[in-house]
């Protein structure tokens, strides 16, 4: 059982095929999985989504460590105790990071670039620190790609732009986007 060398022997195995060679292989199977789901949002997020429908951003606080969770969790991740006290946040916040997307989910090119990012929400009076914060991932509007690229968008004050009340369905898309606070 003595091996002299662990070096890979070249050439290494693997039969590389160009795309057209691959497409000519016998017995290629085209398969599209069909799987349908109906996801329930759960104890905490159902209430959060109900809040969105009413034009409110709700958070929930852990009674033992004081963290405010947005999006809400039914339990505190740190203390593993039930979260209890619901709080309505002002909805305003700052842009933690933002990017300009030129591609869609399936990697096709978008006609108009889209700006998305992370919003660090204001949660006045409640415990938060440098590393963790109440926040949401969402689209950002009223900000130009140049502002994202030169960095002036980071730290910008923003607020939610709500859909009209009659169009809200209790979805994260009840907020159309976050936009700069005027003035």
């Amino acid at each position: 059982m003595s091996g002299e060398s662990g070096k890979p022997k070249t050439p290494l195995p693997g039969t590389y095929l160009k795309r057209d060679e691959y497409m000519k292989l016998p017995g290629l199977i085209k398969y599209k999985p069909v799987a349908r789901y109906l996801f329930s949002a759960g104890q905490a997020q159902s209430r959060f989504l109900h809040g969105l429908k009413e034009g409110k951003i709700l958070g929930v606080m852990c009674p033992s460590c004081g963290r405010v969770y947005v999006p809400p969790r039914a339990y505190c991740e740190y203390c593993h105790t039930p979260t209890s006290e619901w709080v309505e946040l002002p909805g305003t916040g700052t842009i933690h990071t933002a990017v300009v997307s030129y591609i869609a989910t399936d990697r096709s090119r978008l006609e108009e670039p889209e700006i998305v990012g992370v919003i660090r929400l204001d949660a006045p009076g409640y415990k938060e620190d440098q590393y963790e914060f109440a926040g949401l991932f969402h689209k950002i509007c009223g900000v130009t790609p140049e502002q994202v690229m030169d960095g002036s968008a980071i730290g910008m004050r923003v607020k939610p732009r709500w859909k009209p009340a009659e169009e809200r369905t209790g979805s994260v898309t009840d907020i159309e986007c976050f936009e700069p606070v005027e003035g």
Partner: peptide, 29 residues
Amino acid sequence: AYIWDPILERPLGPNLIWIFAMEMRRYMH
């Protein structure tokens, strides 16, 4: 597409590269 949270993230139509771009942008800043 199936890695994203079905309730809060998928409705926004994310691409995986978004999340890396967001992290990279933050690191740069």
